[in-house]
Simulated assay, not measured.
Amino acid sequence: MRSRVRVKICCISSAEEARLAVAAGADALGFVAAMPSGPGIVSDEVIRTVVPSVPPAVSTFLLTSFSRAPDIAAHVAACATSTVQIVDHIDPAEHVAMAALMPAIRRVQVIHVQGIEALDMIPVYEAHVDAFLLDSGKPGGTMRELGGTGRTHDWDVSAEFVRRSGRPVFLAGGLNPDNAAEAIQRVKPFGLDLCSGLRTDGHLDPAKLAAFMRAVREAS
């Protein structure tokens, strides 16, 4: 019997959105701090105001674009989340340093799936992280995208990543109520993560949220 697929609702911007997501059955909430691009960015002040309202059983993820361990640790301490999501490919040595600086904080490494080479990142990070998250960003170039693109990537690569990884793997990028079941069937991830697919005019849409959670339950 396959374990239940977890759901992380990202781009939480208020206590009301957090309440809606938790009531719908979300396992984790994502808070997007300063980024070079993408939707759902909120201030650190908003994050540290909303986090205390989240029940203990629901994980809180800080999405940070910092790449050095001291900066990441300070950011997490300022926002008081239980998990940090590293949205760029960083030096694995920084994960080693983070483990020493904040041993109680779980670390999730984002891998931007631009091709089959994403699989090469498994041995680079696997020993140092608690989970992976596969997204559709483009971290290189002049216009860096570190998530929130609303695009799907090659799910065949993601499925192979899940098969090879010894860590839990979240799938992100272009998910919505209409493709949630296909994503689960094809990729078999530990969890699904999404932002724009549940929003209308920039706000978390209760109807889309309910439809997505229903699709996940039925496909799990």
Rank of each mutant, 00 (worst) to 15 (best):
K8R: 13
R48G: 00
D71Y: 14
R68S: 13
G115E: 02
A99E: 10
S67I: 14
V87F: 00
L62A: 05
A21W: 06
A23M: 11
L29C: 11
A77E: 14
V96D: 10
G30Y: 02
V7T: 14
A104V: 15
I86K: 15
S13N: 08
V58F: 02
E17H: 04
T83N: 05
L63I: 06
I47R: 02
A34T: 14
T81A: 05
V108D: 01
M102E: 15
R4F: 09
Q85C: 08
Q114L: 10
A28L: 00
R4M: 10
M98K: 08
I90F: 06
R6M: 10
P70S: 10
S3V: 14
S59E: 02
H112A: 13
D44M: 08
G38T: 04
T81K: 03
D44F: 12
H89T: 15
A69F: 05
A24Q: 01
S43P: 00
I12Y: 05
L20G: 02
L20N: 02
C11M: 11
A73M: 12
S13D: 10
A97G: 02
V113A: 11
R4W: 08
M102K: 12
G40Y: 08
Q85I: 06
I105V: 15
S3H: 15
P52D: 06
A74N: 12
A99Y: 03
D27I: 06
I72H: 08
S59Q: 13
